[in-house]
């Protein structure tokens, strides 16, 4: 059994506990709680999932199933800045394959790999719901439209 360890600060633990009580049923807070863990650790380790499982009174295999199901959750770390590039049909028509190449060359890493300094990782994502502004980017959970070479260069420079 993956031993549930408590890799969380007291504030983080309080935040997780909040999600166990926020909805009418405990288990309804699971996805939100896992989103927190992903934000804090930039991935979800089995130990952390086991801890969350215990908090929510759910079997570990259930929580691990949820972790591995949803694309937002990763089992290996993302960069400090996680950049998503939409490859949905409209963004693809608008040139997202070229932007993928641009992200790779600008950041110097392949998709889903992390830059050496840990600052970045990028990945292709399915439709981000910004089809009229393609190619769309999701930069740390925030949508940005009209990706261009310049915009990508600026992100690489400015994001800490």
């Amino acid at each position: 059994m993956t031993e549930p360890s408590a890799p969380f600060t007291p504030e983080q633990e309080a935040a997780l506990r909040k999600w166990t009580q926020y909805y009418p049923y405990k288990q309804m807070g699971l996805v939100e709680a896992l989103r927190c863990v992903q934000d804090w650790h930039r991935h979800i380790k089995p130990e952390a999932a086991a801890y969350v499982a215990q908090l929510f009174g759910l079997p570990f295999n259930h929580v691990w199933g949820v972790v591995t199901f949803f694309p937002t959750f990763t089992t290996k770390p993302t960069g400090k800045n996680r950049i998503g590039l939409c490859r949905g049909l409209s963004c693809w028509l608008a040139g997202s394959p070229q932007m993928a190449k641009r992200l790779e060359s600008t950041l110097g890493v392949a998709e889903k790999e992390v830059t050496e300094d840990g600052r970045f990782s990028w990945e292709e994502m399915e439709c981000l719901g910004a089809c009229e502004q393609g190619p769309a980017l999701l930069v740390n959970d925030r949508l940005q439209g009209q990706a261009t070479d310049e915009k990508i260069a600026a992100l690489a420079k400015e994001l800490k």
């Binding site: 926020y22 909805y23 049923y25 288990q27 309804m28 807070g29 699971l30 996805v31 939100e32 896992l34 989103r35 929510f56 759910l58 259930h62 199933g65 949820v66 199901f69 949803f70 694309p71 937002t72 959750f73 994502m125 399915e126 439709c127």
Partner: peptide
Amino acid sequence: MKLMRGAGAYISGLDTALLETMEGKKA
């Protein structure tokens, strides 16, 4: 009224899969 966020799965948008997601399960 309360908000809840998804976690990147298209299928969560289908009503019954949405309910599963809300219940803390795979969609």
